[in-house]
Amino acid sequence: MNKILEGKYAVTMDMYPLQGKEFNRIYPFYEFLKEGRLTTTACRDCGKKAFPPRVVCPECLSENLEWVDLPTRGKVLVVTEEEVGVPLGFETPLIHALIDLGGELTLFSRVVNVKQGELKEGDEVKLTVFPVDPVSVEGKKGAVNLQERVFFAFEKA
């Protein structure tokens, strides 16, 4: 467990979603992420590819969705380097970018393994997946299970 969270409001300020099948409707996203794949949902009826993953197609309201891969390489559109005032559990500088994923969509992401001042508009970046704090979940007969979790960021390609 992240030291800084101990004894504080670890539950309300846990920045990462629960990712197991029992807790999360889009658990396949995290399963694919563990394989290094960035995925989202596409509609089998109208073909609309949405992001973030949905449970209902925002185009035709169909529930007939499938998981599809997104590009894992993209280009930086905008950068900001957060120097002070970051949420509990994060360290400065925190580098954020708006990333164009092969013209398919834009998304925000954190950019890691880069020093302050190094990332610029137009830089190529690629997906990177890393483990984040596991979370304890109560199981049957008082057992406490640790749920492993991952999240993603981008780094310079």
Binding site: V79, L94, F108
Partner: peptide, 30 residues
């Protein structure tokens, strides 16, 4: 800071980056 790193910020898609309103305004200003 923590309130404005979560209020109105997507729990699944944006909060995990440590995004805060200053960073959002920073990106938009940039």
């Amino acid at each position: 800071i923590d309130l404005f790193s979560t209020a109105g910020i997507s729990k699944e898609w944006e909060a995990p980056y440590g995004l805060h309103y200053s960073a959002i305004a920073g990106l938009i200003t940039q």
